[in-house]
């Protein structure tokens, strides 16, 4: 399934939404755990496991730990259960929420992160996003790596002028407002020039035509799309039924 042609964009979007719905209503640790494993395998095949690991370390771990402490030790129960304190119930609840969070992040990454940017344009176009909205989204995505370099250049310039003479916390904190100011002003000036140039060259209209043309001749497989939707629907049924 992973190597077959991708599903048409609209199927991808619908399947993802269904998956989210199922995740939010699922209550079984085993089901959530199995699903997470499945998605992690997908991510690994897509080569995006490292991105998930970063997210897991930065968000899931601290949140999971906090949840265990709060629901397991402090509250010793679930939010709706005002019965006698039960550490087990609290830990179970914490586990479910943590798994849910991990799944929500992992599914989002599996569905969209592996998309090369051209396919993303098609996706947006098929969701009827045109004109200004389309231009803003694709422009931001395309500019991001370059913008990150600009941020590094600004910090480098401050270092190179002796404005960040050491690496203490207080010195680094002092860089923030001035670096952001320069970042903002230079980005704003560039953004205006770029938008002027789009207008002068009529590029927004051309972008729409490009998007429409690309969607007409796509290599998407409706069968793959149906498969994605079927899997998502199965997932929702499993989640609702409370199985196992």
């Amino acid at each position: 399934m992973w190597t077959s042609p991708p599903p048409p964009p609209i199927f991808r979007g619908l399947a993802t939404l269904l998956a989210f719905f199922g995740i939010v209503i699922a209550h079984s640790v085993i089901l959530l755990g199995a699903a997470l494993l499945g998605v992690l395998v997908t991510l690994s095949v897509q080569g995006r496991l490292r991105a998930f690991a970063r997210f897991a370390g930065a968000v899931i771990l601290p949140v999971g730990l906090g949840l265990m402490i709060i629901w397991g030790l402090v509250r010793q129960g679930t939010p709706d259960d005002m019965a006698e304190p039960s550490i087990r119930a609290g830990v179970l609840y914490a586990t479910i929420v943590t798994l849910r969070l991990a799944l929500l992040g992992a599914v989002f990454q599996a569905a969209f992160l592996a998309l090369p940017t051209p396919k993303l344009v098609n996706l947006l176009h098929s969701f009827r996003i045109r004109g200004r909205g389309l231009a803003v989204i694709v422009s931001t995505l395309n500019l991001w790596p370059d913008f990150r370099r600009h941020v590094e250049n600004i910090v480098a310039a401050r270092c190179a002028r002796g404005l960040m003479p050491d690496r203490r916390l207080i010195t680094r904190l002092r860089q923030l407002p001035l670096a952001v100011r320069t970042l903002f002003i230079s980005a704003l000036g560039q953004g205006l020039e770029r938008a002027d140039s789009w207008e002068a060259s009529g590029l927004i209209e051309r972008l729409n035509t490009l998007g429409a043309r690309a969607n007409g001749a796509s290599d998407c497989s409706p069968i793959a799309g149906a498969a994605w939707l079927a899997m998502a629907a199965l997932w929702v049924i499993a989640a609702t039924s409370g199985w196992p």
Partner: peptide, 23 residues
């Protein structure tokens, strides 16, 4: 130099817009 950036070697970059910080 990493510990004390710009102490012995100062640098001017190509693009002035990343090097002006005041109003």
């Amino acid at each position: 130099p990493w510990k004390t950036p710009g102490r012995n070697v100062a640098m001017h970059f190509q693009n002035p817009d990343s090097q002006l910080f005041a109003d």
